[in-house]
Simulated assay, not measured.
Amino acid sequence: MAEIETEGFEFFGVEEREFRMMVIERIETMMVHSKLSKNTLAQKANLGRSSFYEKMDREGRSHFTLLDIFRIAKALDISILQIFPMTELERQHGGQLPLSASTLHFLDQMLAAPKEDIEFLSDVYKNLQQRDQKDI
C-alpha cells in the first residue's frame, strides 16, 4: 500500500498547556464563526455553564474530556478533527485556523450561492487577477 502523505496527528514536543490553549483558540474561532456565545454553546452542547467557562479559561487547569469534545463538535456541527490543530503550520500559529472566522463565514455564504452567482464572481476575480498582473 502506498504511503499516504499526511502531516501527522501527533503532538510530539507540544506541552499539554500549549495544546489545551490551541484547542480553546479553535473552539473560540468556531464559536465566532457560528455566532455563538460561551453560554449558548454550553447549552447546545449540554455542558454545565460554569464547567464550560472554567474549561475555556486559558490560564485555568480544567480540561475538556473526550465526551466534552464530542458534544462541542456536535453542537458546532463540525468534525471533532476541526477542533484539533492538525498541521505543523497550525501548531506554529498557536492552533489558529488558516482562515479567520469572518472569512470562513463568507466562504460558507459563497458556497451556498447559486451556481450562476459563483461563476460570475469567479469571472470577476479572474479579471481582477489579470488586471493586477498587467500592473506589475
Rank of each mutant, 00 (worst) to 15 (best):
I69Q: 01
L97T: 15
I69Y: 01
I24D: 01
Q92W: 11
V32C: 03
M31W: 02
K74A: 03
P98T: 07
A42Q: 12
K38F: 09
L47Q: 08
M22N: 01
L76R: 10
L36K: 11
F70P: 01
L81Q: 15
M31L: 03
S51G: 10
E59P: 05
L104I: 04
R49H: 13
T65M: 01
L107K: 11
L81K: 15
K44Y: 09
L41M: 04
V23H: 02
A73T: 12
M86D: 09
K74I: 00
P85I: 09
K55V: 04
M22H: 03
M22L: 03
M21Q: 05
Q92F: 08
M86T: 12
R49T: 14
I24K: 01
L47R: 10
R71T: 00
R91H: 07
F106C: 09
D57N: 15
A42C: 08
R20Q: 01
I80G: 05
Q92A: 10
I78P: 13
E90C: 06
L89N: 10
M22G: 01
M86W: 12
A101M: 11
T65Y: 04
L107C: 00
A73S: 14
L36H: 05
P85L: 08
K55M: 11
I24P: 02
D68I: 04
M56T: 08
E54I: 02
E88I: 09
S79H: 11
S34F: 07
R26I: 03
